[in-house]
Design a protein around this nucleic acid. Structure first.
Lengths: 210, 210, 210, 210
DNA sequence: GATGAATGAGCCTTCATTCAT
DNA sequence: CATGAATGAAGGCTCATTCAT
């Protein structure tokens, strides 16, 4: 929720600021990110930033939201087809889109990633606007549906399964961003997608030999 | 590797400092943790801390190591029985011990947890003393063995499976520490262990209904 | 190379800061000079100084450069007449201007003087921007020319003579600044210039009785 | 003037401390030299040092004096023959011994050298025990004598000549220690002595072509 | 609306010296 | 006599935020 002044800015200036802030928050935690560096790189006055945004947190929220919106574009197709896909197909597509997003927009993905790592729960809920609890409920619903359709075993615990699905999603992207350079990610996109398939195979069938 | 002076300290003082530092590093990332706050809470002069430790990193390493050692005590039994357990039993025990450790020592677990979240790979490898790559190899070996014994399906990819196992382990503890109060953790230990079992059931058998 | 912010400062404030910093660097080596004392005496916030200058070294470079520029004004006439003067006249004028500069601007001269005393060669070359070696070559050239014109004996070693000329120049000013109060320097300017002449007489004719 | 306790020390310990302190004061100005580093390298308790010496200054005085005494050994021969040498021979020998001393004991020479560079006149006189003025008088006397013997021209100014002689002496050694590594000094001793001769030739005969 | 200077608390670290044991 | 823990001021530097212009 930037102030109106921000949207009155010439597009070039606005984009530059967004770009620079994205970079900073992709590389640093909220605390470590430096407003000073952002305004320096963006070539704007420090005071100006405080005319566009309430404070550091406000800027952060905005950048995080942009990243989330960009990701939604990747997921929109997935969401539209939720009904028509089998559960595993759904998850596969979710992961695939997630990895593709991170591969194509490593900085945007990095922001969300760093956000997930923040320790301060109050801070996170304040930023999210809703409780973490709530944000996890989508998957529980999807799993319940899949159980009803007979696609997912009734023997597994829904909440636990939802937790597992969400965390693996996060872990994959985290791995990419933390241990691979942007270049490596870019060059190995196919390979990464292949690994996603292998992971889903495990999730679908389990470890156990039959 | 604190200086000798640290070990010459009266136990009470030493414990107080460890306690306070543990607290700070459990609640903050390395960068955000404050030496100033630590010495203030410990009631010692700032200069004194530098008589005990080389620098902030040295203190951090020590506290992290203490946490690791404490955790090793929980895992020692697991390690001794590695040969005699089936793969799923092994993983279950690993997770169970991990959760138990975090439930009994939430702050110590929090330190390791925060360490995992650090973005700076060089920093992490410097602290660890070995490469991240290397530290992940144990599980790959365990999975290979399990495949050979016929416990784990040959159809699954070893590296991916190892990644999955490690990350879930981390995620569980992270979840506990981030979204539950110490009190909640303590009161729901049984319930948490039950969830571990449910997760392992999924990992063993997969999502798919049969 | 101060930041633009420094030049945007009201002249009074800027001059005050320059004055105070000049004082500190005239009285102390680079290491011993204190940023804290400078800002206190200048009556500005510590953070402000870092809005004007990159760091201590940046401030130092600037102050040193100011001193050098001021000295250049004294030497500009000398440099313009290099061709038309005999060697000894050249040296005399150099020394005379140097002494006059130090007498009129003891603090500015003191800064350059302290710089010469720094032990760390790398530091000095970094500040100078060129190698020490190079900065000494002017005199060697002048002496060679003088030899060719028959003004200076071919029997003397050029490099050694250049060393001698440079070091005496430095020594004289050093002596003034170290062992005389600013007041004494000011009151004895004539006397000092007379000593310069006496020294040049020795350098011209040597110690030896004929 | 160390305390008696210092002399009661086992020789090995005493020598180690001297050695380490020598090193520190050879590499740093009085201010920059670190007591902490000295005791660490010497392997003694910090408190101990303050039982041997009054304070940092006291230690410094002692180390400086040791260096002076060592140098006196080099100069003793020179002093004994003062009467029998011509003026230029005297100076030559003084310089030669000085260079030889610095070549053989660069650290000891470095201490004296750093001392000369100190800005605080009061500090220097306090350390020296006598006024700088006084310490320069020897040469004036020697020059006067040389004039009387007809070796040195009556046309030169005694005080100025004395200043010149002393400062060149210092400058040569300073040059060696600042711009040459210990190894280079050691390997080029002959060459350095040759330069001394060349410088004395200039001082004897002057620049002027005849 | 834009500016950017000013702020002062905070950062980690080093210092010479003291003094209880 | 030796120890080394304790001290707290000082070191250079960065921070997010404010506010007069």
């Amino acid at each position: 929720m930037p102030k109106q002044t921000f949207f009155n800015l010439p597009e070039e200036k606005r984009e530059k600021l967004i770009d620079v802030a994205t970079d900073e928050f992709a590389k640093n935690s909220f605390n470590s990110a430096s407003i000073t560096k952002i305004v320096e790189k963006a070539g704007i006055a420090k005071g100006s930033l405080y005319q566009y945004f309430e404070d550091k947190k406000d800027l952060y929220k905005y950048i995080l939201e942009l990243s989330a919106n960009k990701k939604k574009e990747y997921l929109i197709e997935w969401m539209n087809r939720l009904q028509h896909l089998s559960f595993i197909e759904m998850i596969r597509e979710l992961y695939v889109k997630g990895v593709a997003f991170a591969a194509d927009n490593p900085r945007l993905a990095g922001i969300a990633n760093n956000f997930m790592k923040e320790n301060d729960t109050k801070f996170k809920e304040e930023i999210l606007g809703i409780s973490i609890e709530k944000s996890n409920q989508l998957f529980e619903q999807l799993i319940e549906n899949a159980k009803n359709k007979g696609e997912v075993s009734r023997n597994i615990d829904t909440k636990v399964a939802a937790f597992l699905v969400t965390n693996l999603n996060t872990s994959i992207v985290d791995y990419m961003l933390t241990y691979m350079t942007y270049e490596e990610i870019f060059q190995n996109k196919e390979e990464l997608l292949d690994k996603v398939d292998k992971m889903l195979f495990i999730m679908e069938n389990g470890f156990k030999a039959k």
